[in-house]
Design a binder for these strands. Structure first.
Lengths: 223, 223
DNA sequence: GGATGTGAACGACTTCACAGCG
DNA sequence: CGCTGTGAAGTCGTTCACATCC
């Protein structure tokens, strides 16, 4: 449903063909691998060598990279710096993203201190928690606000993304509130399925599902 | 590979057909939904109502559940308690799993306090960290050991699973060491791809990949 | 020669549609 | 009649294989 739609797209010239979810995930992996290779001095890489370390076939690598345009040089391979730039642009990590985090519990605090966010240009600039005891506290240099303040604060700060580390029960309400406050993407760690507010993209990291996945694999001797 | 093998399986009659990874993930979601429904007093559920809240078609639900055996009652639906038991058995969460955690940093500590683990029968019984300053400390009632102690401790405790919250650089070495110590499944949070030791199953939760997935979706207006 | 880009074959997963059972 | 279980059809993603270009 809703295929082309009213798309208020700016001159979306390059990356037009549909990237599958799996492809996008692999692009992330290529990107990290390429950054390591470049740091080690490698400036040219072939689809075979790039895929090898990641367990991806060379054909798959070429298909994935073909979406970004004609970056490969037949007989030679890909130029690492060029490729890195192209993937960064395609993934949207060539700029900074402002995010708000809701649910300042154990996991929330851990994520606040997590380097990976900042390294990729994701900056958490606002904290929210429903617990009155936490409101007003400072965590990692940021004040904890009441969820009621979202409607005012998020647009003012220009926050585009939300990170949900609330209990499962409150996740949906917080997601809806964030959507109303103009957030366009949510990364949720709350177990369970979130009904996505209109115009909001959701990526879910459900630890319970992952754990059960693992238990299943081990139990059934999946290799 | 290794289909029937030497499997020290107790009468493994039912769950024989291949469950896809996606199916297993959905079974987790069904399970949680069913538990909520049952708590609310619902004891019968049809494929349509079960799938609705999760965004899964009725046919898909039936296909998934068919792997577990003939549990459905035509014209009626499925009996929730029966179904819950069957899914628990299939996923292997009808028993306790002992796990060790390596990397007692922010994320590791957050996971230690995370309820979801214990709730599903995953018990963390040993901690490891390479930092000499941390070795000997007690965290959440558990002593932090040197990684060198794994070979001795893990088999003695009967640990089957490992949780990796180490930096990316050390993840592979720790994974290999755990494999040697008899661990059969790993849940890793280290960014990057792990080369899986023989006989070990790996589930990776790569936050960087998830973040970039989200940035991509938002950037390209994926709804 | 060596490696890319890509149609074609293949395979895996999902949806359709319907027979069959309570 | 309602809802399951399942072959058949359809869709999507991956691998193959090869023409093409440096």
């Amino acid at each position: 449903m809703n295929k082309g739609g009213d798309a208020s797209d700016r001159a979306a010239n390059e990356t037009e063909a549909r990237l599958s979810r799996a492809s996008v995930g692999r692009l992330s992996l290529y990107l990290r691998r390429l950054e390591i290779l470049l740091r080690e001095g490698t400036t040219k890489v072939s689809s075979g060598t790039l895929g090898e370390a990641l367990g991806v076939t060379d054909a798959q690598v070429r298909k994935d990279l073909a979406y970004l345009g004609h970056l490969g040089h037949p007989g030679v391979g890909y130029a690492a710096p060029e490729l890195i730039d192209a993937i960064r642009r395609a993934l949207g990590v060539d700029r900074e993203w402002l995010a708000a985090l809701a649910g300042v519990g154990n996991l929330g605090r851990a994520l606040l201190r997590y380097r990976g966010f900042a390294d990729r240009g994701f900056r958490i600039v606002a904290l929210f928690d429903a617990d009155p005891a936490k409101i007003g506290q400072r965590v990692e240099g940021l004040e904890v606000h009441s969820p009621d303040a979202m409607a005012e604060l998020l647009p003012a700060l220009g926050v585009e993304l939300g990170v949900l580390t609330t209990p499962a029960e409150s996740a949906q309400a917080v997601a809806d509130a964030m959507a109303l406050a103009g957030v366009r993407g949510l990364l949720t760690f709350a177990p369970g399925v979130l009904r996505r507010p209109a115009g909001v993209n959701v990526v879910s990291v459900d630890l319970t599902v992952q754990l059960e996945q693992l238990a299943f694999l081990v139990q059934h001797g999946g290799e």
